[in-house]
């Protein structure tokens, strides 16, 4: 599911997706980005296994928890 967001035009809204879809879609979108570009993952939980994969691949990420319970994860390729 692609949409735009003030933080970046590259967004995966995985809030109503079942695992492992959010992981798969995030990794797929990261592959399409240029180095230094950012993407945003929206999720109702903190994806610790994804964090681990991002760290292993050298991608930086920042997480913000919104009042409605959405985690916004901004990932830099």
């Amino acid at each position: 599911m692609s949409m735009t967001h003030p933080k970046t035009p590259h967004v995966v809204d995985a809030r109503y997706m079942e695992p492992p879809e959010p992981f798969v879609q995030t990794m797929e979108m990261l592959d399409t980005l240029k180095v230094g570009e950012k993407m945003l993952l929206l999720l109702f939980r903190e994806p610790h296994p994804l964090y681990k994969a991002l760290r292993q691949n050298g991608h930086a990420y920042e997480t913000e928890l919104l009042p409605d319970g959405t985690f916004e994860i901004l990932i830099t390729r």
Partner: peptide, 10 residues
């Protein structure tokens, strides 16, 4: 995650 509901308020 498993019941596809909205999240609990933070």
């Amino acid at each position: 995650m498993f019941q596809l509901t909205p999240a609990y308020q933070a």
